[in-house]
């Protein structure tokens, strides 16, 4: 564990806590894409299966259980909780996220480290996580005034993988033959997708104006 990875995990944790706070306290999911939440639930379900087969550390197990629990809880709130679901703008959240799942799965069948069930699912989860934010970014462009909590949620979600990139650089230089091309490339693509969001987020923060993404 290094400070970059810890910062990444804490940023990821914080982003989810922000979203849970928004949904649980003000019972609203306005501006939040259900499709991105469903993709993330699938990412965690396919990546964290190893909590049943192995043990790495208490931290690792607890974080995985929290990510699994929170992602499915958020999807449940947005689909079935009769107050929260009313604030879900489903006619704006129209990104065809199913079109992301199949290509990622096919790519995982073609490009992976080992051709085993767990490894292919793990690789699939990496590819899917790289593109999972797309429905949310599209929805932000359509939502005229993005509320602060949603903006902060997306920012810390994007920041987590950026910290992971620093972690991979750090580990590459401090550990012998440490390289994970698939993880690194997926992480770079994922972070690149946030580039323009980061730009507008910092700009709105600097000018202390509301966050607005150009349509």
């Amino acid at each position: 564990m290094n400070i970059f990875r810890l910062a990444g995990d804490m940023s990821h944790l914080f982003s989810i806590l922000l979203l849970l706070l928004k949904i649980h306290t003000i019972k609203s999911c306005a501006g939040v894409s259900l499709k991105t939440q469903e993709l993330y639930a699938l990412v965690f379900a396919t990546r964290y299966l190893d909590i049943f087969t192995g043990y790495i550390s208490l931290y690792n197990t607890l974080m995985k259980m929290f990510f699994l629990w929170s992602s499915f809880t958020i999807v449940w709130y947005m689909r079935y909780h009769n107050v929260v679901r009313r604030s879900y703008d489903k006619d704006q959240d129209t990104f065809r996220h199913y079109f992301l799942i199949l290509p990622c799965f096919i790519l995982a069948l073609l490009v992976h480290e080992k051709f085993t069930f767990l490894e292919v699912l793990w690789t699939f989860s990496l590819y899917l996580e790289a593109v999972a934010i797309l429905p949310q970014l599209v929805l932000l462009q359509r939502t005229r005034n993005v509320d602060n909590l949603t903006g902060h949620y997306v920012f810390f979600l994007g920041a987590y993988r950026s910290f992971y990139i620093l972690n991979w650089i750090y580990r590459y230089f401090t550990e012998q033959n440490y390289y994970k091309w698939i993880t690194w490339i997926s992480g770079l693509v994922q972070t690149a997708l946030y580039a323009d969001f980061f730009y507008y987020y910092v700009k709105s923060w600097r000018n202390s104006e509301r966050l607005q993404l150009p349509a």
Binding site: R5, D9, H12, D50, G54, I56, S57, N60, M63, K64, F67, W122, Y164, N167, N177, T183
Partner: peptide, 10 residues
């Protein structure tokens, strides 16, 4: 390569 270290990240 120790598989544990292989998947020690979240």
């Amino acid at each position: 390569k120790n598989s544990k270290r292989n998947k020690d990240e979240l």
